[in-house]
Amino acid sequence: MILFDYDKAVHLMERWGVDLLLPHTLLNAGYLADHWKHDLYTSIGAHTTFDKDEPYQLFVGLPRDRKIDPFITCRRASEEGDMYNWGMWIEDRRVWGLDERPRSLNSPLPPVTGEMYATPYEAVAAALKERGLAGASIGVERRYLGVEGYEKLQRLLPEAQLREVLGLFLELRVVKSEEEVRRMRGAAQATQQALEVTVETLQPGMTGLDLESLIGAEHYRAGARHEWIHTQIGPQGIDVVGPNPQEIKTGDVVRIDTGCSYRHYRSDFGLMIAVGEPSKELLQIYGAVRPAMDAVLEALRPGVSARQLFEIGNRILEREGFESYLMYFGHGIGRNVNEEPVLAADSKWVLEENMTMAIELVTVRPALGMVALEDIVVITSDGHEDLSTIGRELHIVEA
């Protein structure tokens, strides 16, 4: 389905002076097409090669003129099946690849008709020439396309102007559609449930690897895809954030930061856990960080600037004698874990309805560890809706 605001995309293309968007990363091409291929791709670029060393590559072409059909490149075989199963809204699928294996018996896929291209770049060039856009101004993700990919496109389209438009996509993705918010709720619910189980299960002797196994299994049980986790145990957790064999001990402060994806949209929040009776120092820090987070949450609404929100949280932390470990108090979230707007002192963003954000306040003490609170929200017309709530509490488990 179409997730993005098509009218806004056209307006942005006019402002940026491009006739067509041609992203290739799953972050942005996948966003336009509502497509994600987990087994071959990172969010930035290809890491598996096929077809005589031709890297797998996805392109989506979205013309500014809505009378001209969009197109997508599609590798022969498995990716065709993915697009069929998920109901790809783009009908012009340019199949490429040297694999000429026959269809399976009673295959749901239609017969391959027309030309099958050797590379995705040739497929793009053919689609643009058919649309009269071979000499157009084309918006690409040049930073991630690489020298070789850029040169291939330029050789096949010598009259085209290839322009960097990463900033355009940041602006296009920052306000979510109703369907995107629905998927964000699904991801948040899966992580909330996984962390609730963690609070009930965690005990001394467990390791960061145990926590990863537990939370990952709960994510999958909820119908989401486990994506990542930080398990920060005691003072060492300031520097060692990945899952590791370190055992949890009585008296440790454990910070878990984790996320999953549901239909390609992410969660990002965590837990603060005191193992046994919390120390006075921990309670003092939590007593400063929690009011700062509550104040930021209370101030969330359309029209408030990201800079104002940073100042609100920072003022309370400084008043209590603490400082933020991070240079921000929150960030956007969606198809990527870290998106705009970032709640920082130098941010130019102003909140709008249906922005989705992770509100995150972090401070550290070398002898104690990391104290971090984080939950995700969606901005509403008159404030915000909590998509998670477990990440702002200090949880105490018996030792």
Rank of each mutant, 00 (worst) to 15 (best):
333 I>Q: 08
176 K>Q: 11
7 D>M: 03
240 V>E: 15
155 R>M: 00
353 E>W: 03
75 R>A: 00
237 G>Q: 08
349 W>R: 11
103 R>H: 15
290 R>I: 10
336 N>I: 04
257 D>G: 09
261 S>D: 08
326 L>I: 03
129 K>F: 09
325 Y>I: 01
301 R>T: 05
256 I>P: 00
211 L>N: 00
277 E>R: 08
263 R>C: 02
315 R>C: 00
334 G>Y: 14
362 V>S: 05
390 I>G: 01
304 V>F: 04
109 L>A: 06
387 L>C: 07
360 E>Q: 11
173 R>E: 13
202 L>G: 13
254 V>R: 13
5 D>G: 07
176 K>V: 13
228 W>P: 09
345 A>M: 13
277 E>A: 11
166 L>C: 07
264 H>Y: 06
387 L>V: 05
200 E>Y: 05
15 R>C: 07
277 E>K: 13
119 T>K: 05
343 L>C: 07
27 L>I: 11
100 E>C: 06
346 D>E: 12
97 G>D: 07
351 L>Q: 03
146 G>C: 01
355 M>L: 00
315 R>D: 05
131 R>W: 04
320 E>P: 10
122 E>I: 13
210 D>A: 01
163 R>E: 10
358 A>R: 09
288 A>R: 14
121 Y>A: 01
145 L>E: 12
30 G>H: 12
96 W>R: 03
213 S>M: 11
314 N>A: 00
81 G>F: 10
72 I>M: 09
366 P>G: 04
259 G>E: 09
246 Q>R: 11
159 E>D: 02
379 I>K: 01
301 R>P: 03
398 E>H: 10
399 A>G: 14
269 F>G: 08
51 D>K: 03
333 I>Y: 10
382 D>E: 03
284 Q>T: 11
207 T>C: 02
352 E>T: 10
262 Y>F: 06
6 Y>G: 08
357 M>L: 15
390 I>M: 00
307 R>I: 05
